[in-house]
Computed example of a mutant assay.
Amino acid sequence: MEKLFLSLLLVFGPGLVAKAHAAEKVTVFAAASMQDVVEEAARAFSGREGVEVTFSFAASSVLAKQIEAGAPASIFISADEDWMNYLEERKLISAASRRVIAGNALVIAMQAGEKRGEAADILRAGRFAMGDPSNVPAGKYGKAALEKLGLWTEVEKNAVFAENVRVALQYVNRGEANAAIVYASDLAAAPGLTEAYRFPASSHAPILYPAALIGEGTAEARTFLDFLSGFQGQAIIRAKGFVPAAEAAN
């Protein structure tokens, strides 16, 4: 009997070890604008905890629908409250784990060397890119800001809708659009582009990034979420051009 047990351990032992290792992996589904933050945080966390962190970046709407369809995510980081609410209403996240981890500002990006100006002058001058207002948080904020400023009806015809903010910036980099409405954090990670205009905070709802565990979450996922909320994670968030959670809440 003992020999049989040892034989089974030799045969199935590696698989059991592999399963235990796989259980430790944390998979983060995060809004495209959070890519630089999550990648750096993952490196720091993995180095400290020895836990593998993988990630998927896209528009919050796309990720939320993937999670709804059963995609194996551990944590969801949304670029707005709406898509987190969408998952919470369907009881797909741990409501108790939900928290805001960052805030942001909305700006108009242009090629370096372009002069700062008013939003109206920039957006009337030609094509500009922005997230699709129908499903991309940055696009919703952008449309709301332009409506608040009384510009949307006039400049909508010049808008080129993108699937996320990173794609909107690519349009400007390639000269396919004169400007892009994006988050300040995305502009901070885009060499060669400059801030031509910053929308007043009063022109749109606060730009907040809620994060939560999918389902009840594993111990490793909880630890990574706490890392993002803690001192080291918040320092990374600030360094990448975001507003730390404590300031975003004010």
Score class of each variant (00 low, 15 high):
E154Q: 12
T27L: 05
H21V: 14
S97L: 07
G15A: 12
A79G: 15
T54D: 13
T54Y: 10
D186I: 04
A177K: 08
P72D: 09
G233L: 07
K19R: 12
I122Q: 03
S134Y: 07
E81C: 02
A64S: 10
A235E: 15
L151Q: 08
V155I: 15
V37A: 03
K91E: 03
R98M: 14
A102C: 11
N85E: 03
Q35H: 07
G15N: 05
F55C: 07
E88M: 02
E154I: 11
L87A: 02
A18L: 14
S94D: 15
A180G: 04
D132N: 14
G192D: 09
Y183G: 05
V107R: 03
Y183A: 03
Y183P: 06
G50M: 08
I101H: 07
A109W: 12
F12Y: 13
Y209A: 06
A162C: 15
V165R: 00
Y141T: 05
G70W: 10
F199T: 04
I101S: 02
A179M: 13
A211L: 02
K19C: 08
I75Y: 01
S74I: 01
A32Q: 09
P191I: 07
G13H: 06
S33R: 00
S60I: 02
R99T: 14
G131V: 12
E52L: 09
Y141G: 09
G126L: 12
V155M: 06
I236W: 04
D132T: 02
K148I: 01
E147V: 09
E220M: 07
A184I: 00
E247W: 10
M110I: 13
A20Q: 09
V243W: 04
K140R: 15
A18C: 08
K140N: 09
I101L: 15
A159S: 11
A205V: 11
L6K: 11
S203N: 12
Q66R: 14
T54G: 10
A120E: 15
K115C: 09
E88K: 03
E52M: 07
E195R: 13
Y209Q: 04
A102I: 12
F5R: 10
G13D: 13
A249F: 12
A112P: 03
E24H: 02
D132P: 06
D186Q: 11
M84G: 01
G70V: 08
A221S: 14
F76V: 03
A30Q: 02
A184V: 00
F5P: 00
N164M: 03
A188Y: 14
Y141F: 15
D82M: 01
A188D: 10
A177L: 10
A64G: 09
L16F: 14
A20H: 02
L4A: 11
N135K: 03
M110Q: 15
A71D: 01
F227D: 01
A249I: 13
S78P: 08
R174F: 14
F224A: 00
S60F: 07
G131E: 04
A79H: 06
L146G: 08
G217Y: 01
A112N: 10
R127C: 01
E247S: 12
